[in-house]
């Protein structure tokens, strides 16, 4: 597989949100606006790249039987690191995303890439894989956030293009399910061509 392919496959073919349907909790919970979705995606990408690199470097020293707990500890370490970085530099984003930052530990995308890719590929390839899948996740979350923000509050990335409030339900919980369902259908129909 070419190096470029490692990066681009996360956008369509192995898109974590629309094809693999992984990491649904942050996808639904944090996409109340485009900015929030993008922040969550970038936070996950940060953890994904670092944990992929670390795991691919140490994978051959880990006995097979305890590999999953070991991976979880590595991931939890980077999540803690991310919490410090975010608290220091972007405290407002940290407060908005709240509980979902520590919950990156149990995001199936991160553990899934460790198990499916990082533990049998080189450090460099694993970093590229982390970037690709992470950006695919970020783009999906941004699109979902953008749709919900546009319909729900008539704005895009905080810029108001429509007077009034919009359809409030799209910012609330039911709208998350509904927007994701229709985006999934459009993705299947036009991009993945199933």
């Amino acid at each position: 597989m070419s190096k470029l392919n490692l990066i681009t496959k996360g956008f369509v073919k192995d898109n974590p949100t629309f094809v693999l349907l992984l990491g649904m909790c942050p996808t639904l919970a944090t996409t109340t606006s485009a900015i929030n979705g993008m922040s969550m995606g970038l936070a996950t990408t940060f953890v994904l790249i670092l944990s992929n690199m670390a795991i691919s470097a140490i994978a051959r020293f880990i006995p097979d039987k305890v590999r999953i707990p070991s991976y979880i500890v590595v991931i939890a370490t980077f999540v803690t690191l991310l919490q410090f970085v975010m608290q220091a530099y972007v405290p407002s984003v940290y407060d908005t995303l709240g509980l979902f930052i520590p919950l990156i530990v149990v995001n199936c995308i991160v553990l899934g890439r460790a198990e499916a890719f990082a533990n049998k590929n080189s450090v460099f390839d694993s970093a590229l894989d982390g970037i690709g899948v992470g950006l695919g996740f970020t783009v999906s979350l941004t699109v979902l956030g953008l749709v919900r923000e546009a319909l729900g509050s008539g704005s895009a990335f905080g810029w108001k293009f429509m007077p009034g409030d919009g359809v409030l339900v799209f910012v609330l919980a039911p709208g998350a399910f509904l927007a994701l369902a229709y985006l999934l259908v459009l993705f299947r129909k036009f991009i993945a061509k199933q």
Partner: peptide
Amino acid sequence: PKAFKGVPVALITASILAMAFM
């Protein structure tokens, strides 16, 4: 419909359920 099979239609059901819980 074919494109709605599986997860999308489940998500729409979940959305209606969430509206009920609202």
